[in-house]
Amino acid sequence: PPQTPVRAAMDVIQQLKMTLHSASDRPSEALISYFNNCTVNPTEDIIKRVEYLGNVFKEKFAEALGMECAEIGYQRFNLAKRLYFRVMESMLKSEEKRLSVQNFSKLLNIDTFHTSLLGCSVEVVMATYGSSGSILQTGTTHAETNLSFPWILHIFKLKAFDFYKVIESFIKVEPCLTREMVKHLEGCEHRIMESLAWQTDSPIFELIKQSREQEGQTEQPEPTSS
């Protein structure tokens, strides 16, 4: 059939569903093996975190769109959860190849890493449906455009700078992202770099401070500039 805007939008959603249909909504054997290789096994924390953030997401989704949309929120999060585990596995395989190590205990026990990765997965799912909203007008999608980035940062209480850290690796290891989705994630990066990362409570200021202190230990101090 001829390609129309409606068909293109539906194809993008269908493609996401097809990709994630074969993915599991729980850690795969390969992931469990990575978890077991850790000095501190992160499995329990990972499962609890996903459950907690899933409840937060579903509650906020229904709050924004109405209780009649609670089931849709459940479906959206379920897709995001599958994407999260799929991308995590690919990231770890890529890191194993690059670093020749199998113990990722430190990374896998960092809360912000997981919350950012799950947040990015949610954003991909929401943007896939949201971008089709103006075309398909299925009833919920119009309202869902209000739930686009940076909505996920607010509901997951996630710092923009931490979210920024996962985007590039996410794009590198997930081959099924469409051109439009890569552009969308790049747009999120730009918003973070241009404004969101510079908000008062951003961790970027502590990093700059630490960086200056390290420089100060190895180099002659420079005159203070305005």
């Binding site: 430190k106 996962v166 690796s169 794009i171």
Partner: peptide, 21 residues
Amino acid sequence: FHDYHFGLEENEGISELFDCD
């Protein structure tokens, strides 16, 4: 990856970004 601009160096990855190197 289309026109996406990668900022990480060849020898950098997610581990370095979360300070795990």
